[in-house]
Design a protein around this nucleic acid. Structure first.
Lengths: 122, 122, 122, 122
DNA sequence: GTGGTCTAGACCACA
DNA sequence: GTGGTCTAGACCACA
């Protein structure tokens, strides 16, 4: 599920974190789900085990994953997803409207960033 | 108002287009507003006049700008802004919720892109 | 009540002494209370009778226990507990504050040891 | 200032964390103080740079240190110390009383741990 | 099998 | 100079 861009200025472990958070928020990874073993994921993504481990540890510290020594990492019961499911519905509606008005992906992102900036000024 | 990133893989003229569209959608450029002379804008952005001209011509072709020979470029009466103002309100609400849940700019963009992808699958 | 750590660098008889003193200070063993027969305690802890006996004798020498030949060991009338009950209250307060500031057991011990060291410098 | 016990079951980076927290709480490291460069500290402690870095990063995440890229790590303005200075005075008093009653370091620690356990039962 | 810690060393980014 | 990320690989602990 995870795709990395090794040329991106965003560090690899952060890319992994972003994508796992995304999966959790979108409800594609549910509480209790087991993640692939770190060594397996490292091999698949062609990165070092420590890089994957670092991402998983950060997610654990944030309460999104839980580690069970000797067994693996699991999505924690705490439900980021549930809290955000309604917001995601709004985002889907926004995206749909954008598309209907011929706004492309890049303009969509530009608008998101601009709104992000504005809101923090308040 | 316009800031360019010359290292970005997005072509300069496309960046100019994106930012002017953004200003129009957010209502910061209104129908009838005059844009700066192409030579002035080219000088300010330190790019070639033709690059700015190409951007303005593309925007004219899309009906967002209108050129009045000898006078300059103006935001056209057709109002992209009005149609989208409600959608922008939704986007602001989404961004606000994201922030309240500790979701940062990068995760916000990742979610936008993912939803964008999903919607086109349907 | 007593739990031994056989891998600890602290000798077994010293561990028994520490834990009985602890029980007395915390008021869970009161003056006059009878201790289990040495053979019973040795069996329960899976150590040699002499090890328990040595611990009890040391405690007797310190005036904390009293042996009554043919009857067993008893907590002596002298009350270490009474003298320290107020100090234990202070310790409880310190522990409570530590917890409220997110200081864990290990940091608590580190601070205790450091203060111990400092005080002996004076 | 920092002394490591490489045979301890407590991981090295945690030992570093504990000792820096201790120094901050005891007021021996004050807000704004610069920590030694990670490479220097690693050399002095004879551990790998990454191990020191991990400790410093954890402390940064906890808000105790702040990193200034290219300049070093500094004790953050947030003052754990100030909040705890009174508690430390209580601890000093407890330690003093313990000593006056002939309670040694080990018994002191045993009592601390016991009180710690009791309080969490409540 | 699977996570957790650590080392040695490379290379990059900010100052 | 000083922090930040990453790799390759060793060794340990829990299951």
């Amino acid at each position: 599920m995870i795709v990395l861009d090794k040329k991106s200025p965003i560090p690899i472990h952060k890319q992994i974190i972003l994508q796992i958070k995304k999966e959790v928020i979108l409800g594609r990874l549910k509480p209790g789900d087991k993640l692939p073993p770190v060594r397996e994921m490292a091999a698949r993504l062609k990165v070092n085990v420590n890089t994957v481990l670092r991402a998983f540890e950060d997610l654990t510290r944030e309460g999104i994953l839980e580690s069970q020594h000797g067994k693996g990492f699991f999505v924690s019961a705490q439900n980021m997803q549930q809290e955000l499911s309604e917001v995601i519905e709004y985002l889907k509606r926004v995206v749909k409207e954008f598309k209907e008005h011929g706004i492309d992906k890049y303009l969509g992102m530009t608008l998101l960033l601009e709104v992000w900036k504005d809101e923090s000024d308040q």
